[in-house]
Design a protein around this nucleic acid. Structure first.
Lengths: 198, 198
DNA sequence: AATAAATTTGACTCAAGAGTCAAATTTATG
DNA sequence: CATAAATTTGACTCTTGAGTCAAATTTATT
């Protein structure tokens, strides 16, 4: 391994990793206590750092919130993209939903809803991103209505209904509780499915 | 009408009415922009008042948030209590859900989720209150599982799923949009029902 | 060990918004 | 109209937490 080649790469990589740790920890704090109730000092303490050290990794608090949103949407996009094309739309949607719930309960990634604490710029980006995801899922639902697996009705409302379950999950789910993420995923997927199946 | 009797009563009543208007307006602001993003000055301006005037009606901002929660739970309790006992549990649940959605879309009452901005005292009260409502609905679901109208499975999860839809509704619903609250109510009730029906 | 780069910190500044209060204004009553 | 109570306001204070920065400390490199 050529040190001259490897090390500058590792440096950046280490920095990026630590930065991600900051975003992740902040996300947890924002999810549990709310964006404004969670102070940077508090988040820093979680990581065994001081507030000033945090600012070595991020520009400001809003940027952290922004990155939290992006992190969640990246994870969702990945799941969205990984869905095989074979089967009937309802089955694909169910598999998708299971993956989403498992990701949210297992990965530590937080799906935040506070979009108003972002500046106009970032808010637009986040809402656009969310919109794209919603539209993909709506499209999937419409496919299902075409292939006969999903019953008719406003596809957008179909989706908003069960996306609510997903967002709300983030508010009440506690990893240390008795319910395992996997079980919730199976239950929720079934309920989601039954709610819109033909 | 005896003035001596009527007027002192009206005074209080007028005060209470104005106070409620403050709570309601604040609730809208909190829902749209978030508790911390909505300033008291801003809320006052909405009502054609100045911040200082607001403080004639309320002790502090937290109290307003607290009252917002209570207002929503009062409205929900009222609906919960009004449900006739006759029919099968699933039907009662559906009727209930329709009423809840219509209330949230029509009344201007906001179902807030920010419970962490409350002091320990008030937070406990609110969570207890929410817990009671959830438990009532869970009980109803269990009844349904007994009378055969609702399929088996963790009743708590059944409920958390569709309560998510309700909470999320508050985040995206816009009274000035194309979707009428009544239509959403019917759609959501159907989807809720299908999701847990036997 | 000496040097340089990366990382962390204590001790600050600063802004925003909650909350106060004495005085002004409005409303109701005799 | 005069008086008192209710309501509203402008002009404050105070707190909290975001964000900064020069200096200290740690880590890597020769």
């Amino acid at each position: 391994m050529d040190a001259a080649l490897k090390e500058p790469f590792n440096r950046e990589k280490q920095f990026a990793t630590k930065r991600q740790a900051v975003i992740l920890a902040a996300g947890q704090a924002f999810r549990r206590r709310g964006y404004h109730n969670a102070s940077m000092t508090e988040i820093a303490k979680t990581l065994g750092l001081t507030k000033a050290a945090l600012y070595y990794y991020v520009r400001n608090k809003e940027e952290v919130l922004f990155e939290c949103h992006l992190m969640a949407y990246d994870a969702m996009d990945e799941i969205l993209a990984s869905k095989p094309k074979g089967i009937v739309a309802l089955d694909r949607l169910e598999a998708l939903f299971i993956d989403l719930v498992e990701m949210l309960t297992a990965s530590g990634v937080s799906l935040l809803t506070d979009v108003n604490s972002l500046g106009a710029e970032n808010k637009t980006v986040v809402l656009t991103r969310r919109g794209k995801i919603e539209r993909k899922i709506i499209r999937l639902v419409k496919e299902g209505q075409k292939d006969g697996s999903i019953r008719s009705g406003d596809a957008r409302l179909h989706v908003f209904f069960f996306m609510g379950a997903l967002n709300w999950l983030n508010a009440w789910y506690d990893a240390s509780g008795r319910l395992k993420g996997e079980d919730i995923a199976v239950h929720f997927a079934l309920q989601m499915r039954a709610g819109i199946a033909s």
